[in-house]
Design a protein around this nucleic acid. Structure first.
Lengths: 202, 202
DNA sequence: GTTGACGTGTGACACGATGTCATATACAAT
DNA sequence: ATTGTATATGACATCGTGTCACACGTCAAC
């Protein structure tokens, strides 16, 4: 978490700094980002940066969290819009991610191509990292379970784990492979379809 | 790839260096590893390191590749041993990974908790990263498709993609959560079971 | 209006890591 | 011996990090 000093900053100065950080993390992934670039761009002295943040990661995760919150919101709306059909909602959501633009897209690209567990952990909260999780319950309540071949909450939890693994991986492959939109979407659709019908007949 | 000089090295000196590198990459993930530590441990001068490798990553991926080759071998044997039952083979293989010991375990831990796309790409070759892939064909030929609810090679490819996404993610969660062996295995079994039966009834 | 306390701003600095390069050494071939 | 080629070496320039002593500004108390 950023320090209190950061939140006490006059809005324009704070936004300026945030923008410089965003720019740097859109340029390169976390481990290659440099504080020097951020402060040069934001035109603040080195010491000031350390008044606001513990270090590079602190700034990064602050930005990441705000991204995640907004995507979380968006996902819940998407799920509602699709009347609780989790599969349609995922495809919808997947489309949103891979059609982001400009700086946001670069940020996401660096994010997904360098998805350490620590980062994944922050993101996965949207999908419910553990079964006591508030977000998981919210999602669970929205899901239409009528035609789901799922026995209990535990299976539902693991179903969500699987879906998010597959979704993450598809996003990574889209970003890595520079696949055209249609191809990426078809791949994802195929995999969701396979998940629905299952691998074993009978 | 390491330079020719590296392969010309007398065996004991080379192994000594490899061991020092392994130790460093078992200590911390790639992005935190330091060449200084490696050369200190291997007792070679700084300049020599750069005679053998381009940089830190070069050394890392050399080690990684040798790990992957051996696991690839092991996976094919496992699949044969399980008479082409891909699901049993995966559970078998998963067990192997999470019960590795000592230095190997730490290396894998750092690997999976910091799985960038570049690393995943190297690993995924064992599972067949693209359908023209030699390894994918080998695996495909070994798989018993009798009871599989799979129409064609494309679906098979995506099935493998899904299985590897889920497997990777389970390994990450095991390492991150420090889950006891039994719990980790049960989680993985549940997810494989769900993949087999499918999410939608009918 | 002087003082002191507190929060904040600042940049020089010590430290550590990287990759390079000029020079030294070993050794084989002639 | 001489020359050529491969390898060894460590000092060095460069860059990024995090810290620290000091400067500044505000405000309340006296």
């Amino acid at each position: 978490m950023p320090k209190i000093t950061f939140f006490n900053l006059p809005e324009d100065k704070r936004e300026n700094l945030v923008h410089a950080a965003k720019k740097e993390f859109a340029r390169v992934p976390l481990y290659q980002a440099s504080i020097s670039n951020i402060i040069k761009d934001a035109k603040i002295p080195r010491g000031s940066f350390y008044q606001y943040f513990d270090d590079k990661e602190d700034a990064f995760f602050y930005l990441l969290n705000s991204h995640v919150s907004s995507y979380k919101q968006h996902f819940l709306e998407t799920l509602r819009k699709n009347n609780g059909d989790i599969f349609d909602a995922m495809i919808d959501f997947y489309t949103t991610i891979i059609t982001e633009v400009k700086e946001n897209l670069q940020f996401l690209r660096n994010l997904f191509l360098n998805m350490t567990h620590r980062i994944e952990n922050v993101m996965a909260r949207s999908f419910g990292e553990n079964d006591l999780n508030e977000d998981f319950k919210k999602i669970s309540n929205l899901i239409n379970k009528e035609r789901l071949n799922i026995q209990d909450e535990d299976e539902l939890f693991h179903m969500m784990q699987i879906i998010s693994s597959v979704t993450f991986h598809n996003i990574v492959k889209k970003f890595a492979g520079e696949l055209p939109f249609e191809e990426a979407l078809n791949n994802y659709r195929t995999e969701i379809y396979l998940l629905k019908k299952g691998f074993v007949s009978g």
